[in-house]
Each structure stands twice: as C-alpha cells, then as structure tokens.
Amino acid sequence: MNKNKFEDVLIDIFSDLNVNNFQVEYSIKKFFLCGGEINIANEKTPSFRDRFMRHTAQSYDSIYNAIVLAESFKDYFKENVYTDLLVFERDIANIATLVIIILESPGALVELGMFCNKTDLYKKLIIVANQKHTEHEDSFIYLGPLEYIRRKDPTSVAEYPWNDSVQKNDYDSLEDLCSVINDKIEKYPSSERLKVDNSGHISFLISEIITLCYPILIGEIELIFLALEIEISISQIQRSLYLLNKIGVISSRKYGTSYKFYYPLIKDKKTVRFGGTKSGRKVDSLTLRMAINQSFINETDQLSGRRVNVLKLINSSLLVTV
C-alpha cells in the first residue's frame, strides 16, 4: 500500500533526526493541584485550596494560570484511556512541573499515599499540611509519610495553620506558600536530555510533533515514532494525547467520518529541541514546517483536502481565541 505524500515527508524528516540529540524544554509550566472543595460562589471559601486559588488569581497570575485541578481528570477512565490508576498517577507526575497536594480531603490523602514512595518525584512535590494535625506527634501523618518525605527533601513539605473559615493569618500563609512554589520553580531545570522511558518526555515529544506537523492524525504520530525508531504503543500515544489536551497544550477537531486531527494550542513554546540530524545538519523547525505544509496543501487526494479544510478551521479558531 503506497503512502501519501504527507506521510513520505514525515518519514524523510524524522528518520534523519538523531534521538540522542533531543532535548526536552520545560517551557510550559503546569501545577497539578489536589485538595479540598473549590466553590467560587461561596464567599466562606470552604477549603484552603479554594483560598489559594482566589489568592493566586488576585496576586500571582503566573501560578494561577499554571494550575490544573485534579478534578480536570475525573473522566480518565472513559474510553479505556487509563485502566490503571497507578499508571495515571505516574503519567500526571511526569508531565507536571509541580504536584501540590493540600491535605484536607480524602482524595488528597490518597494522593499522598501514592506519591510518598516515589523519591524521584520529590523535586516537583509540595505537600501542604495543616499544623492543627501535624503538631500532635502521635499523628499517623506526622510520624509517617510527611516525615519520610521531609527527610528526603525538606522543600517538599510546608505546614500552615488554617481553620474551616477564613482567618486574618491566611494571607501570610498563602503568601508564604506562593514563595515556596516560586523557590521550587527556580531550582527546576530548564531542560533535560530526552529519556524515552519517561512518559512525560514522550508527551512533550508528541506535543512538539503536533506543533510541527498539525493537523495530524494519531496514526501519523505513530508513524513518526516508527521513523524515530522509538518503541511506543498506540495506547501510550492515546494517554499522552489525553493528558496534553487536559492541561491545555493541544486540542483536536473531528472532520468527516472517523478523522480526528490534532493541533497545538501553544505554538510559541518549544517542548523538545531536536538538535542536529544524523548527518550533522542543524534542524530548522520553520523550514521543516514549510516542507510539511507543502506536502498536502497543493495535493488533490481526499485526505489532503480534508487536512487543508481542517487547517483553515484551526487557524480561524486560534485567531478568535487570541
């Protein structure tokens, strides 16, 4: 079966790239936030997480805009994208810049239990505990996971006093928490060599592929991984696409019968730099993007026509949202 011109160009481009030169760029900051109830309509602010959201919305745009609420992923089990909760938690942690867990709900305690043994993730973990619970040294949480994590990384545990209703000292606590977050971000690496066994790195690579090649189908993303000689299952690609969509990095548009095209929402942020090709040439993303566009814009086959139509729709929708 003959491949279309679009696929031929993808194979030519990506088979010439050297995966050993790939560098993951942490240019997009996302903070996974778990904790108590959020209810903007309730002036009594039912939880410390709610107060944190309100505080950052007013005073810390960079933090507020990076927050992804745990509730955003409540449909992770649908369509069998994820059938294993532990795999889901691992992938979330790998793609997030920070994982912030405010211990004030049963769900947050479950998250704590899942992350406390993942020592490789402590660099991006912040556990926020209520001093009312930790000041009693016979507390299971105090004697158990929190102390273990604190010994491994003191910057991963923060304690503050708070009550069920808003208090005057909440402002100082929230200000300090924002400082803890910013300090943690400052120590976060700006880039790292691509590791193919890191699901977060694979997601960032898929994000860069979509930015370079959109509108693109999932089967074409799989073809690119074959050209790169990276072994990856279609289910792993589906999981990455789900997460990238949920954190607002990509989106998709259906067109025709069973066609679902993916495209970027943040085109000005590189998530992977390709470095040099196998022959030593420097990779110019703009030149590659132009070559990919030319592979379908003037073609007359049905799939190319659909791709052109979807590209027009995507560009018009992106202009509206800017």
Rank of each mutant, 00 (worst) to 15 (best):
K124Y: 01
K118P: 00
K132N: 15
D176C: 07
D153Q: 04
E89K: 01
S72L: 09
L112M: 07
T97A: 02
I92E: 06
T97I: 02
G144Y: 01
P145R: 08
V157N: 04
H133W: 11
L86Q: 09
S179Y: 11
K168L: 14
G144T: 02
Y160M: 09
P106Y: 08
L85E: 03
G107W: 05
G107V: 02
F77Y: 13
E89M: 14
G107Y: 03
Q131S: 15
R151K: 15
S156V: 01
L177W: 00
S156R: 01
N169S: 15
S173Q: 08
Y142S: 11
V68H: 04
L146E: 01
D153C: 03
H133S: 09
P106L: 09
D120G: 06
A93Y: 05
R90N: 13
Y148N: 07
F77I: 13
S165K: 12
I67C: 01
K152Y: 00
E147T: 14
L86D: 13
D91V: 03
L69W: 00
A96V: 00
H133T: 07
I149K: 00
P161Q: 08
L86H: 09
E104D: 07
L112Q: 02
K123S: 10
E175V: 12
L69M: 12
F140K: 02
K168M: 10
P106A: 12
V99G: 04
I100S: 05
Y82C: 06
K74I: 13
V180N: 03
V166Q: 08
R151W: 04
K168W: 07
R150C: 02
I102T: 05
P154C: 02
Y160V: 13
N80F: 10
K168S: 13
A129T: 03
P106D: 15
I101Q: 00
E175Q: 14
K118Y: 06
P145E: 05
D172T: 11
L125R: 02
